[in-house]
Simulated scan of single mutants.
Amino acid sequence: MSYRKELRVAELAVQRAALLTQRVFHEKAKGTLSKDDKSPVTIGDFGAQALIIHAIRRSFPTDEIVGEEEASSLRENKALADQIWRLVNSTKLEDEAAEEQVGGPIKSQREMLQAIDEGQSPGGSRGRIWALDPIDGTMGFLRGGQYAVCLALIVDGHIKVGVLACPNLPVDDSTPLSADVANDSGEGRGVLFSAVLGSGATSRSLSRGALEKSQSIHMKDVPNITHAIFCESVEAGHSSHSDQADIAKKLGITRQSVRMDSQAKYGSIARGAGDLYLRLPVRADYEEKIWDHAAGDLIVREAGGHVTDVEGRRLDFSLGRTLKENKGVIAAPKAVHEHVLDAVRSVLDSK
Rank of each mutant, 00 (worst) to 15 (best):
Arg58Asn: 11
Ile135Leu: 12
Asp63Glu: 11
Ser59Glu: 14
His218Glu: 15
Leu298Tyr: 07
Asp342Leu: 08
Gly145Ala: 15
Ile269Thr: 08
Gly123Pro: 02
Ile106Ser: 06
Ala248Cys: 10
Glu68Arg: 01
Ile290Phe: 04
Ala18Gln: 03
Ser233Val: 06
Asn168Tyr: 13
Gln114His: 12
Ser34Thr: 15
Asp133Ala: 04
Val310Gln: 12
Ser240Ile: 02
Glu64Cys: 08
Arg321Asn: 05
Leu51Gly: 01
Ser194Lys: 03
Glu100Thr: 06
Asp117Phe: 04
Gly188Tyr: 03
Ala10Pro: 09
Arg23Tyr: 09
Thr42His: 05
Arg321Ala: 02
Lys265Asn: 02
His54Cys: 01
Thr308Asn: 13
Leu206Asp: 00
Gly31Trp: 05
Gly124Leu: 09
Ile225Phe: 05
Glu287Met: 09
Ile159Lys: 09
Ile65Leu: 05
Ile53Glu: 02
Lys250Pro: 00
Asp133Ser: 01
Gln49Leu: 04
Ile290Gln: 02
Asp184Val: 04
Lys324Ile: 07
Leu206Glu: 01
Ala79Gln: 14
Gly67Thr: 03
His218Met: 14
Asp261Pro: 01
Met219Gly: 08
Glu70Lys: 14
Ala303Thr: 09
Lys30Arg: 15
Asp243Ser: 13
His218Asp: 10
Gly157Phe: 03
Ile84Leu: 14
Asp261Trp: 15
Ser108Cys: 09
Ala182Gln: 07
Ala270Ser: 13
Gly31Tyr: 06
Ser108Glu: 05
Val347Phe: 03
Gln101Trp: 10
Ile229Ala: 11
Tyr3Thr: 12
Thr21Lys: 00
Lys250Val: 00
Glu6Ser: 06
Ala79Phe: 11
Ser205Asp: 01
Thr308Ile: 13
Val161Leu: 06
Glu64Gly: 10
Arg128Pro: 07
Leu192Phe: 07
Gln22Ser: 09
Ala79His: 13
Ser240Tyr: 03
Arg126Phe: 13
Leu151Phe: 04
Gln114Lys: 12
Glu70Thr: 14
Pro105Gln: 12
Ile135Gly: 00
Asp275Lys: 09
Gln109His: 06
Leu93Gln: 05
Ser350Pro: 06
Leu323Trp: 03
Leu151Thr: 01
Ser268Arg: 00
Gln83Val: 09
Asp243Cys: 11
Gly145Glu: 15
His227Phe: 09
Lys5Trp: 08
Thr226Lys: 13
Leu7Val: 04
Met112Thr: 10
Ile247Cys: 09
Pro176Ser: 10
Ser242Cys: 08
Gly312Ile: 15
Ser216Tyr: 11
Gly145Ile: 06
Tyr147Asp: 04
Lys92His: 14
Ile116Val: 10
Ala195Glu: 03
Arg23Gln: 13
Leu74Tyr: 07
Leu19Thr: 04
Asp316Arg: 05
Gly296Arg: 03
Arg8Leu: 13
Val161Ile: 12
Ile43His: 02
Gly304His: 03
Gly119Ile: 05
Gly144Asn: 11
Ser2Gln: 14
Gly123Ile: 02
Asn224Met: 07
Phe46Trp: 01
Ser2Met: 11
Leu319Gln: 15
Asp95Leu: 11
Val336Gln: 05
Leu315Val: 01
Val102His: 03
Lys107Gln: 13
Ala97Val: 14
Lys351Met: 13
Gly305Arg: 03
Phe193Gly: 00
His339Cys: 09
Ala201Met: 07
Ala81Gly: 07
Gln83His: 15
Asp63Pro: 06
Lys30Pro: 01
Ala81Trp: 03
His158Gly: 07
Ala55Asp: 00
Ala236Met: 15
Leu341Glu: 11
Gln15Asp: 05
Leu177Gly: 03
